[in-house]
Design a binder for these strands. Structure first.
Lengths: 191, 191, 191, 191
DNA sequence: GATGAATGAGCATTCATTCAT
DNA sequence: AATGAATGAATGCTCATTCAT
């Protein structure tokens, strides 16, 4: 196809990496409204260079998010055949939560719904859904997780939890928030 | 003190109401970044008229959010002495959820953290917290709701749920999302 | 001609006077950029009322300025036949300076050049020029005031002095500024 | 420290110069209220470009004024040790007048009072005051200039004269206006 | 390939003027 | 005649995107 990203020159690669790194931090800390000029400045390149690597702001956002999604997909795959299915699910959720807790405005944009996500990301998100779905079903089959919910429900709730974690009110703790989610997922809740 | 907002002229009242209505919808659907000019346009008035009623964007946001908060405070107060404390709490949560389900980027901005909330709103939000806190404690005392969480945890989770409901993924249902939250709040969840 | 301002109703007269009074103070203190709404508010009337009396902002400005000009014309006329022509001139200048010293952005707009002055004022300004011109010529004829300048020069310098008085630098005094002008006008300056 | 304004690219330099030129003319002719967009338009650039060079309106004003002030400081310094102190002072005043005659609403804003002047300019203005003050004292010591006035008086009067020159009434001449100022400054004027 | 200057539509806000009540 | 709500053009400033160097 000649369509795959031909290997970049070393300096270009370096710039791209630095831009992603800076963007990750900036979006996480200040939200998606950070000006691109600012990201370029912090990365020590001109805005034109940023543009060469990411032709629109959205494409930069996408790249940042994709990275995270892929990492989660990897983790989910590693847990695919875990012996304790419920533990596997909660371990992954722990990782998602861990990963996103400190992160930001994009993670929830992503996890929340896929609302604004474009084509390129769809594949990765779909795969993540599939992997988590696999873990969910195994956990449900084991009897430890309630059987009345589907993967879409879980993903939606997860988005909400990520959002909540980024907006922990004074006096609230991550542990409590996560505990409520986990207990709500488990069977054994009263009729 | 003669300081109360004297009754508006009929046409002004009409415009103010229309502006609030449009703003409510616009903020809910598109987020707080909707241009004021756009809100004015949709309400069929000039930007100057919007300004006359709401001298800054924040004041408009505040007015929209305040309306909702006050309604919830009223509802909470009506449940204050309900015979079944747990039922009272869940009834209020139902109402919050109902109210906010289709609504808003602001409600969660509100419930989520109080991120950008100014003086005028603080009072109302504080009162809402207090009322829900009262219901929570009564429900905990009755033994039906887990005792290890505080009002801050509940408000934070609630914010997350509202967020989730606004971003229901395809295949997810409001009932399932809410069920997970409610069961997570109840006692009886396994250790 | 039926064109002269028919006598106003008592309340209208009162409003007009109050508006002029407020406008005088506001323009003097804050400059011509004071919003009309603000002037109306301070006068305790609606902007519509202001508009009824002064159909444009400029017309209000004009009215304020005209008042001052007319008072000066009256004073000049009173000095027309004074026994000491030079003293008469300097007395009038004193009065102009006195009048304008505390005043403001309009006086110099006026005195400076007539730059922005419209038809209605022209007559009054012309009369003021004529009166001061008369005093100037008498003072020149008496030998006390330099003969090489004309009324236009004097008016221009006067505008500059008024301007200077409104912008007295720290450490400068009105007396010194005026002394320089007066001495510059007198004969007897060295060749 | 590598902190000096690195040389601009040729095109940027050209734009910056053109903007300054246009701003100089516009402020001079129409006053400081000229819209920035208008200045940009006349310079043939977008408002963003203006912003790149001058991030606020005030900074543009400052730049325009600073240029003039610095030129005058230079001229004053060249006259510091002139043999004829009174001639030196009047020569500088001539230059100020010459420079500003056709110019500007800002120059007088500057000379007049320092009304709106910010930090960056303060230094230059202070230096100009100091230089003119030096010339004034030398001229006074020589006996040719009246001893009862200070530098603040002179600067204030100078501001007024600049103002007057920009508002030369019909029939008035620059020579007459300046002659009045100069003679007012000289000794020998009658008591 | 990199740079950073230029672009220009867009935003929140202001205010002289008009007009329904 | 007074009121004050509405209008809408205009302003200073921002920033994603484009393009000359």
């Amino acid at each position: 196809m000649g369509n795959e990203p031909r290997p970049l020159r070393a300096d270009a690669r370096r710039n791209r990496d630095r831009l992603l790194e800076v963007a990750r931090g900036a979006f996480a800390a200040e939200g998606v409204s950070v000006p691109l000029d600012e990201i370029a400045r912090r990365a020590g390149v001109g805005p034109g260079t940023l543009y060469r690597h990411f032709p629109t702001k959205e494409s930069l956002l996408e790249a940042v998010v994709r990275e995270r999604v892929r990492r989660l997909v990897d983790r989910a795959q590693a847990l695919r055949h875990d012996e304790d299915p419920a533990a596997a699910l909660f371990t992954l959720l722990d990782q998602v939560v861990e990963d996103a807790a400190a992160k930001a405005d994009l993670v929830d944009t992503l996890a929340g719904a896929g609302v604004e996500i474009r084509t390129a990301l769809t594949t990765d998100v779909t795969r993540l859904h599939a992997e988590i779905g696999h873990l969910l079903i195994r956990a449900q089959d084991s009897g430890a997780v309630r059987g009345d919910i589907g993967i879409a429900d879980l993903m939606t709730v997860l988005g909400g939890v990520l959002y909540a974690l980024r907006h922990l009110g004074a006096g609230a703790t991550r542990e409590h928030v996560v505990a409520i989610l986990y207990d709500g997922l488990r069977t054994g809740a009263p009729a």
